[in-house]
Computed example of a mutant assay.
Amino acid sequence: MLIAERPMLVRRLARIVGSEPVAEDVAQSLYLRVQRVEDDPPINNKRSFLFRLASNLAVDHVRAEQSRARMQAEAQALLWSELAPPDPEQAASLNIELARVLKAAATLPEPTKSIFRLHRFEGLRQSEVAAHQGVSVTTVEKHVRRALAILRRARDGE
């Protein structure tokens, strides 16, 4: 029945979700869901059940997309919102903190300094850094953790 009703189902789903490609995805989900439906107790009107199930899946999909869009908008607002510029006292404190971190970064021991630079500033994955330096990934992880600990202590003025 699902195959016979598919064109009509996809049209109905497209009206609900607003897009034929998305309706096709929901129809595929419907196919998977129908495979799990048992006929105990017997379903009297299978066609009606099929269309109700399709509508429910489409509405669930729309709600999930709306929720996802809302969360994404909130995340974007948090990430890209304008921050108030720091007052002069905060700016001075931040400059001192930055100077401590830069000084600590400059004095990182080798190979911690090179490994940290390759991973964090040049964007190499840890496995790539390990191959480049001729060490294990575990060693790279250890050096990155060490560098972060040193920089964190410098930032905190320890």
Results as ranks from 00 to 15, higher is better:
Ala4Gln: 14
Ala4Val: 12
Pro7Gly: 04
Val10Arg: 00
Arg11Glu: 15
Arg12Asn: 07
Arg12Ile: 02
Ala14Trp: 02
Arg15Met: 13
Ile16Val: 14
Val17Glu: 06
Gly18Leu: 02
Ser19Cys: 08
Ala23Cys: 06
Ala23Asn: 04
Gln28Tyr: 00
Leu30Lys: 02
Tyr31Leu: 12
Gln35Ser: 10
Gln35Asp: 11
Arg36Ile: 01
Val37Gly: 03
Glu38Val: 12
Asp39Pro: 04
Asp40Gly: 08
Pro41Tyr: 02
Pro41Thr: 04
Pro41Arg: 03
Pro42Tyr: 05
Ile43Pro: 07
Ile43His: 05
Asn44Val: 14
Asn44Trp: 10
Asn45Met: 10
Lys46Ala: 10
Arg47Cys: 00
Leu50His: 11
Arg52Trp: 09
Leu53Gln: 06
Leu53Arg: 03
Ala54Asp: 00
Ser55Lys: 12
Asn56Glu: 08
Leu57Trp: 00
Ala58Trp: 06
Val59Leu: 01
Val62Gln: 04
Arg63His: 09
Glu65Asn: 00
Gln66Leu: 08
Gln66Lys: 09
Arg68Phe: 02
Arg70Ala: 08
Arg70Ser: 03
Met71Cys: 08
Gln72His: 05
Ala73Asn: 09
Glu74Pro: 00
Ala75Gln: 13
Gln76Ala: 14
Ser81Gly: 10
Glu82Leu: 11
Glu82Ser: 15
Leu83His: 12
Ala84His: 12
Ala84Ser: 15
Pro88Asp: 12
Glu89Thr: 15
Glu89Gly: 13
